[in-house]
Nucleic acid binder design. Structure first.
Length: 869
RNA sequence: GGGAGCUUAGCUCAGUUGGUUUAGAGCAUCUGCCUUACAAGCAGAGGGUCACAGGUUCGACUCCUGUAGCUCCCA
């Protein structure tokens, strides 16, 4: 069959993915082998594949494919997250487009729309991962709202409530005025925001003066309960204990003193609004101030505000500033930059608010989870994240787990008409509990309307995907858990990683995974985060169509050092595509020889084969080391160079027969073997092209995907050194040819002056072919009428038909001489230093002496050559 | 405000306990080649006082201190 000019991923990718699925290579069941398990961080069920997923899942696929090819029982579990707030927001938006408001629907009606949406768009992302080549065990696909999973989440809630770890309480929370729900601290993103600092005058009761406060939130003055100054602040000492009036509404509030106030910020006087600021709340508690909540759920002002009722908080800010100015309360405004909290999901400014919510007490749960990471029972790569983790864990706060949403796991608390409640897995149990607890059967119970934070289900992921909670101690969970490697972004270290570790100890008394690999953030090539508003997120599926999955994987992996950010550049995908073609062309070359095999006639290629087999072993070992340290991009670079440089540029050229000449059978077979092993090494990174080549190389009954790879370990250093020498000499001589403008087709006569004649004799055939000589001879003295060059410790004389350009040659030699002399000076300086000779380790000293001797010898050779020019 | 990390060639990065030929790759650049596998290619070349300033040491890209810039996390 005629091979195409270039590698064509479009047909190949799909063919092999279907084949692998048919053969069930990705399917894993417990057996006698050692398990290697990865659970995929579940993407949002309605999400689409973006660069972050691409990086993340490519890394996981590389690890899992490598494990599979090592003979481990590799299991990679896919799934999706119901993503409570994100999905609900999407459904609400969809309904709005259809002219339906959420408030007009019952809970059941809304949920049926949501499920419809989930069925329609859910799991698109999983289909997209197939295009990337991800070798997931699809039969194990999980969803965090699957019936079993749902039940386990509820079970965990009830258990923790009964242990007293979960409680209900009214505290300050972050309120999302768009999604109309509470948020955890982790869901609030702080951003530097330009604001205005308004200086407002509050009149003092009984005195003809006023006090000036500075605030960025003039719209909250109607919620003020006090003005606070520092007790030692001389400016305000006479006002302590007096009263002031809130502008516009004239409410009377006390002036109190507390050393919480920073005297040097603003005017040193602080308005206290306990309902709408976390710090003001604590201050309010301490001084028993009134709490006046002036906002509605949606961020508009409530009746309690008295004025501007029903208007949005930011609109009020503008209007009230104008009114305050008109009425003489606004002294001045200044520009001010500070951090403001925004909702991670809806990007609206979060409103601190006092609210009755469900909480999970974290202190006790966190203790073992902190220790296990500090002791490196769970290893973090890169290790710097240990610090981040420790800092958060040591300062951990209780987790607000309730959300005012419908899409999610409904909180299993049941209330009577008086608001008394019980927590139980279902209504029947709730009734029993109620009867027991309150000594009478309930008239009617209704379930809490709220649902749980998404992460309250995802923290169970590593063992509930194996039904570790719904079916405790089943064969799967016993075999696969703890899992091996978690690959995820550092942005969810608190949301997810930390909480999974806590859940692991709490419910299984075991770590959930042995190592965590934190990927970097994918940015554009200018270093900016990928974002919709910048429009700098590439269309991933378009890229896969254009370059192929292998090139895309290559492109994203080649520049992804562990833990560093990835600057995504399409040029890297081109490099990947070119690499595909390079491999493809090597295949074409070898296939040309297939019909020209002959019996073995010479030993000419013996060196090439021996060298490459050693080189292959050497690099395989290097790659193994790098993989163990998660230096994936380095490993890929190393394989890339092994294939492109060592195999294609050197080895294949060395064994390549002349035009339409035959090739020895044994050389051919060896070459097929090398190529196969190279494909094995590369397969985890670029699965499609390697599988295709594997089958093109010769008829196969098996597949590369599951072929076990065992790199040779025995190395012959001498051969490897000879190889480098040969490469150096070839490059050096080609350089001379280039500089002297000797045409490629023109042959040269080569004379070698060396003390290592035998070494050159063993590589003579290759050398001759690579630098196009008509003859190679050995000499003990300088050859007249030649170009001279010194490579390592040997001198080479080149005789051509062309006239010699002595000036350029002389200049080159002089330049080299200059460099060597400089080098020699630095070495001699070291050796002339008595303290160095006394203190340096013997091997270092010996090395310096060798450097000196070598440099001197080479200087002599060059001087001789120059003299004869 | 507190903490962590980074700064090496035009770009992206290696450089493993301080000494390995006065710093290595890849990409980009330049020169010469349409050489029957590959111009998405081949053969070469140029390019860096290792952010800055001190210190420790016989010796510092490597260790310490400070400064500047950038990034991230937390409050």
């Amino acid at each position: 069959m005629e091979l195409s000019k270039n590698f064509e991923p479009q047909s190949v990718d799909h063919k092999w993915y279907s084949h692998w699925l048919d053969k069930q290579y990705f399917k894993s069941t417990p057996d006698h082998r050692e398990a290697y398990t990865i659970v995929m961080p579940p993407p949002n069920v309605t999400g689409v594949l973006h660069m972050g997923h691409c990086l993340n899942n490519t890394i996981q696929d590389i690890l899992i494919r490598r494990a599979r090819m090592k003979g481990l029982n590799a299991c990679w579990v896919p799934g999706t997250d119901h993503a409570s707030i994100a999905t609900e927001a999407k459904v609400v938006a969809m309904l709005r487009e259809r002219g339906i408001t959420k408030s007009s629907l019952s809970r059941e009606e809304f949920l049926s729309y949501a499920w419809e949406w989930k069925e329609k768009y859910g799991g698109i992302i999983l289909q997209q991962l197939k295009k990337l080549g991800c070798s997931l065990d699809w039969d194990r696909t999980n969803f965090t709202m699957d019936p079993d999973y749902y039940e386990s989440v509820i079970k965990v809630f009830v258990e923790l409530y009964e242990k007293g770890v979960i409680y209900r309480g009214k505290r300050m929370i972050n309120w999302d005025v768009k999604a109309l729900t509470a948020l955890s601290d982790e869901e609030v993103i702080r951003k530097e925001t330009n604001q205005k600092l308004y200086h407002l005058k509050y009149a003092i009761e009984g005195l003809d003066e006023h006090i000036v406060i500075a605030t960025v939130r003039p719209e909250t003055i109607m919620g003020d309960s006090a003005i606070c100054v520092h007790p030692n602040d001389d400016r305000y000492k006479h006002l302590q204990g007096k009263f002031a009036f809130v502008p516009l509404i004239n409410r009377r509030i006390p002036i109190i003193a507390d050393d919480y106030v920073a005297m040097d910020f603003g005017t040193g006087a602080l308005k206290v609004t306990p309902a709408h600021d976390v710090n003001d709340y604590s201050l309010g508690q301490k001084h028993q101030l009134e709490i006046i909540d002036i906002f509605n759920d949606n961020g508009t002002l409530s009746e309690a505000a008295q004025i501007y009722v029903g208007l949005d908080r930011f609109e009020v800010r503008k209007k009230i500033a104008v009114e305050l100015e008109e009425k003489g309360f606004l002294l001045k405004t200044e520009e001010y930059t500070s951090e403001v909290g925004y909702s991670e999901r809806t990007d609206v400014v979060v409103e601190p608010r006092l609210s009755l919510q469900w909480w999970l007490s974290m202190k006790d749960i966190a203790t073992p989870a902190l220790k296990t990471v500090m002791d490196e029972e769970i290893k973090f790569y890169p290790t710097k994240f240990k610090n981040v983790y420790r800092h958060w864990m040591e300062n951990i706060k209780d987790w607000c787990i309730s959300r005012q949403l419908w899409w999610g796991h409904r909180i299993p608390a049941w209330y009577d008409e008086k608001g008394q409640f019980v927590v139980a897995a279902n209504e029947t149990e709730a009734k029993e509990k109620y009867t027991k607890q309150f000594g009478m059967a309930p008239l009617q119970l209704h379930q809490d309307e709220d649902c749980l934070d998404t992460w309250f289900s995802s923290w169970l992921w590593p063992f509930e995907v194996f039904k570790g909670l719904s079916n405790p101690n089943n064969a799967d969970v016993n075999y696969y858990y703890p899992t091996n490697t978690l690959v995820t972004g550092p942005d969810i270290i608190f949301f997810w990683v930390a909480r999974m570790i806590m859940a692991g100890f709490e419910f299984k008394n075991e770590i959930p995974f042995k190592e965590v690999y934190f990927t970097g953030t994918v940015r554009d090539k200018l270093g900016r985060k990928m974002s919709k508003s910048l429009g700098n997120s590439p269309d991933l599926l378009g890229l896969i169509d254009q370059y192929g999955a292998d090139a895309t994987r290559f492109g994203i992996m080649i520049a992804s050092p562990a833990g560093n950010d990835i600057l995504f550049d399409e040029a890297a995908l081109e490099q990947g595509r070119n690499f595909n073609n390079k491999i493809w062309n090597a295949l074409k070359l070898i296939k040309m020889w297939e019909g020209r095999k002959l019996g073995n006639t010479s030993n000419d290629n013996h060196f090439a084969i021996e060298w490459f087999s050693n080189r292959l072993a050497e690099v395989s070992n290097d790659v193994e080391t790098m993989m163990q340290q998660f230096r994936l991009s380095e490993a890929l670079k190393t394989i890339y160079s092994l294939i492109w440089d060592d195999f294609c540029s050197w080895y294949l050229e060395w064994i390549k027969p002349g035009f339409e000449q035959p090739i020895e059978s044994s050389v051919y077979d060896k070459t097929i073997g090398f190529f196969t092993e190279l494909m094995q090494l590369l397969h985890p990174f670029m699965p499609f092209v390697t599988e295709e080549i594997y089958h093109q190389l010769q008829e196969r009954t098996d597949d590369l995907c599951i072929k076990i790879h065992q790199p040779a370990t025995v190395l012959n250093e001498i051969i490897l050194q000879k190889g480098s020498l040969l490469k150096n000499v070839i490059s050096g001589l080609r350089d001379i040819r280039n500089k002297q403008q000797v045409k490629p087709k023109e042959t040269i006569k080569l004379y070698i002056q060396t003390s290592n004649k035998e070494v050159f004799e063993s590589i003579e055939t290759i050398l001759s072919k690579q630098v196009n000589t008509s003859s190679i001879e050995y000499t003990n003295s300088n050859v007249g009428g030649s170009f001279t060059t010194v490579i390592d410790k040997d001198t080479f004389y080149i005789v051509t038909e062309q006239p010699i350009d002595i000036t350029s040659q002389k200049a080159d030699l002089e330049k080299e001489l200059e460099h060597l002399k400089g080098f020699l000076v630095s070495v001699e300086k070291k050796l002339g230093n008595e303290k160095f000779v006394q203190n340096a380790k013997p091997e270092v000293l010996a090395l310096e002496q060798k450097k000196k001797a070598d440099a001197e010898a080479k200087i002599n050779i060059i001087k001789e050559s120059l003299a004869t020019l």
